[in-house]
Design a protein around this nucleic acid. Structure first.
Lengths: 135, 135
DNA sequence: ATAAAGGTTGAAGTATACTTCAAGGTCAAG
DNA sequence: CTTGACCTTGAAGTATACTTCAACCTTTAT
């Protein structure tokens, strides 16, 4: 398998080299192999891990938590498969909660476009303004 | 209409009083009316605005952008209704993109639970580990 | 063989979103 | 009429997630 330098990995993933370095420093990514001269050599497993980081970040999880999960996933064959499934289930539950929230907000906004006329939109706008001050 | 103090508004919205102050300082919320003694008095329109901030923040928008939108919404009756509809459409498009992304990630994770057996899960775990280094 | 492009390190800087501190004024209850 | 909860302000501090700087070494192309 061909290994990548940090710059190549950055290009593949859309991250900056500095961001990859940061993730390594924070323990989200394990230290990769090095070449004779000290260059880091990243295998394809780094693409998988970074994909996981990007997906999970999009769900709003902090890097600290992502790092925890990622380290558990990498713990090795001695790790309980059921524990992994549980991690995955948690993640899915989080996604579903977010889906419900999005649907709710979307419904609210959508009504402005479909069910209401211009006067209703003006009304909505008024709810964002201070009422006329009566002295 | 009864007005609230900052603490009451905080309780209603789940924010801290310091966060509300911060939003005012940043221009997300307009300066509210004051009592004789200088206490801020918030009307119900602040509940609407803070709900909007919380919804929009959940979509991943930065406060700066939320502030822009919120100020436009509050600009007054002279603002073009079509411009408001356009803002709302943009917001909905953002939600839909996020929904698609969530569905994709969920599908990927879901397959681990339903379609694959323990060996497949182990395989997935292996993709998070460095391959054995051959010298 | 040299120059540009890209790699290495330690360390400091930035942006976002708040929180916490300090020092004081106000209000409602007992 | 004082105590405690809550309000005010300016200013500094914190957490997260990176980015940028400086100084130097390696690889690739001409």
């Amino acid at each position: 398998m061909k290994k990548m330098t940090r710059g190549q990995l950055a290009k593949q993933t859309g991250l900056t080299t500095a961001a990859i370095r940061f993730y390594e420093d924070e323990g989200l990514l394990p230290q990769p192999e090095r070449s004779e001269s000290g260059y880091r050599l990243y295998g394809d497993e780094y693409l998988t891990m970074i994909q996981f980081i990007q997906d999970t970040k999009a769900l709003g999880y902090p890097l600290s938590r992502i790092g925890d999960t990622l380290r558990k996933l990498g713990e090795g064959p001695e790790m309980d498969v059921e524990a992994i499934r549980e991690l995955v289930r948690e993640q899915i539950a989080g996604i579903e909660q977010q889906e419900r929230h999005l649907a709710e907000v979307k419904l609210h906004l959508g009504r402005l476009l479909t069910e209401y006329d211009d006067e209703a939109v003006r009304e909505y706008m008024r709810s964002f303004r201070r009422e006329p001050e009566e002295e």
